[in-house]
Design a protein around this nucleic acid. Structure first.
Lengths: 343, 343
DNA sequence: CTGAAAGCGCTTACAG
DNA sequence: CTGAAAGCGCTTACAG
């Protein structure tokens, strides 16, 4: 904890400008009811002195806070780092600070972080992690979010959050899943294994739904394919790949449901001397910046993460609408070097 | 801005516990001078009610703030994202929120962000961006930092910040530069081009110093090599690579001074059909998570970014020492597939 | 050990 | 349009 020594206070600029602190306050916050002459004088004095209002005093007195809270699963992940970049960009343009929280992919940690943010009295919260399909998690999220909104807070989420009823930026996960699966099917792959994250995540469920639809269009069923669940990370991808290769050595393609996992898959394949794409094709999802520079360059589904971050904060900056807003984020199939015709 | 409706206040728990708010406050903050019986009763009531103190009121009254500010160049960069991950981890363990700021690599923006953080009344600031060699920038940084420290704030930096005199985590940039250059020289490379970021950054200067020393040990001089400056990013790497190839088509190795740039270099080389490492060897610096999974896997210098983030915050969490503390962070040469004997 | 009271630095009805 | 004053929700000397 830090002790402030007394800095410059509103009284100081008020005195110097020869007005009351009430007038000074109004002039500085730009509220109506001050003559332009006085307002201008006060502002000049403040600028001259380098005065900046104490956020805590201001927030306490007004009950309003300019802070924005950002909840991510793991900031070290490129997916979230790129989203955060977009959020920071917009926050900067609006002179707002962003407080960021990790959840470590634990849905209950997410609820706890949400509460911490509410307690920190931020005015806006952006939740970048995927929604969860677990009823209990949903219910808890809902409690926090509604309490926050009831108190005047604004929240926007990235991804589908069932039942939450807040403004959302929703990436085309279903379409992306379908597109990437179509791509593999079109190349003649039938023995496809899926490296997936937790199926309890809405994002995961949606991507799998897309994959399933593509399969059905080809007379196949997702249930007949090995779908290996692991952590939604590079390490998780490795683990999934090992299980896939051990249990289903005849697969011709591994469809990983995010790029991190795909990188892990590529890594295990390389270790085992299995050539990509000659022996096995591999795909990812997200198209993080490095995806096109991997070995081999990764065929994946592009999602505009940074733009999604920007849009989410922009939504949250808007006053609340009567019905939750929904901004779709388009996907785009990126065919690169990690896929080829089935052998 | 958000309007709070009245939440639970300290009075509420004090009343319910049958004590004064003074006692309640002391019990909850764990300060001495309350009987254990009362303290326990108050804590039980607070927990029961789900009471959490209003940070703004607390900060205003006590003059102390638990917030930590983190300044990075660009959170979308894996280097900074990984550092941020370490910072968030430690912050979480200490129940502190972190406010994060972008500088977009503009040193003056860095100074401005620092000031914003000071105004936001955080108690701790971690500066993750490299120090700058420009005198004017240094002086301004120093002013902000000292004002902050004088007011009781704690700051730690990552990287060398000349003249700043604060606790620092200092990566072995000189040694790393020397190691990576040694590696190339050992492979017989002599016509080496350097893809560098701004030489005004201390990090860059240090890495170049290391390179220079290695060269001298082989009777060469950095001044005789093409050192191309560009942005310290993937795009900058591309630009540098183009200039290097156009102006010095005979180089046998490109030594990029961070991984982002190296990725850009690899990308341009691929475009032009130049084989790595057969025609040209390429090296990076930092060893971001994906470096080992690039095409080809990148020979680079490993720096423990996440650990550096952790250590920086841990330093800042310590009370100020009489002399600034210095935690070195070791480098490690990672030889992978992007380098081979000079042709 | 406990409490009444002042004070942190602002904002905002309420008067004028 | 302007100002005196109350109040936001805490902490912390100061008394007892």
């Amino acid at each position: 904890m830090r002790k402030h020594t007394a800095g410059l206070r509103l009284v100081d600029v008020a005195e110097r400008a020869g007005v009351s602190i009430a007038t000074a306050s109004r002039a500085l916050s730009g509220s109506a009811g001050v003559s332009e002459v006085l307002a201008e004088r006060v502002r000049a004095v403040a600028a001259d002195l380098g005065y900046v209002a104490n956020v805590h005093a201001r927030s306490l007195a007004s009950g309003a806070s300019p802070g924005v809270g950002l909840v991510v699963h793991e900031i070290g992940d490129p997916y979230f780092a790129e989203i955060a970049s977009g959020v920071l960009e917009v926050a900067g343009a609006h002179d707002r600070m962003v407080q960021i929280c990790h959840t470590g992919r634990d849905p209950y940690a997410e609820v706890a972080q949400l509460r911490a943010l509410v307690n920190a009295r931020v005015g806006i919260i952006v939740v970048a992690g995927s929604g969860h399909l677990d009823r209990d998690v949903q219910a808890r999220m809902k409690v926090e979010v509604h309490a926050f909104e009831a108190a005047g807070g604004r929240v926007a989420v990235i991804g589908r959050h069932p039942q939450l009823g807040v403004d959302a930026v929703v990436p085309a996960n279903v379409e992306g899943g379908r597109a990437i699966a179509e791509h593999l099917l079109g190349l003649g792959h039938r023995r496809i294994a899926v490296a997936a994250g937790s199926r309890r995540l809405a994002t995961m469920a949606d991507r799998l739904t897309g994959v399933s639809r593509a399969l059905e269009a080809h007379g196949l069923r997702l249930a007949d394919l090995p779908v290996v669940e692991a952590e939604f990370t590079l390490e998780g991808g490795k683990e999934a790949a090992r299980r896939i290769l051990d249990e289903h050595p005849d697969v011709t393609a591994v469809l990983a449901l995010n790029d991190d996992m795909a990188v892990g898959v590529l890594s295990v394949l390389r270790e085992r001397g299995i050539s990509v794409p000659d022996d096995v094709s591999v795909t990812g999802f997200d198209d993080v910046t490095v995806a096109g520079h991997l070995s081999p360059a990764l065929t994946t589904v592009h999602l505009p993460m940074k733009e999604m971050g920007r849009q989410a904060l922009e939504l949250a900056l808007l006053p609340r609408a009567t019905r939750p807003r929904r901004r779709p984020a388009a996907q785009r199939l990126m065919v690169r070097a990690s896929t080829s015709r089935a052998r």
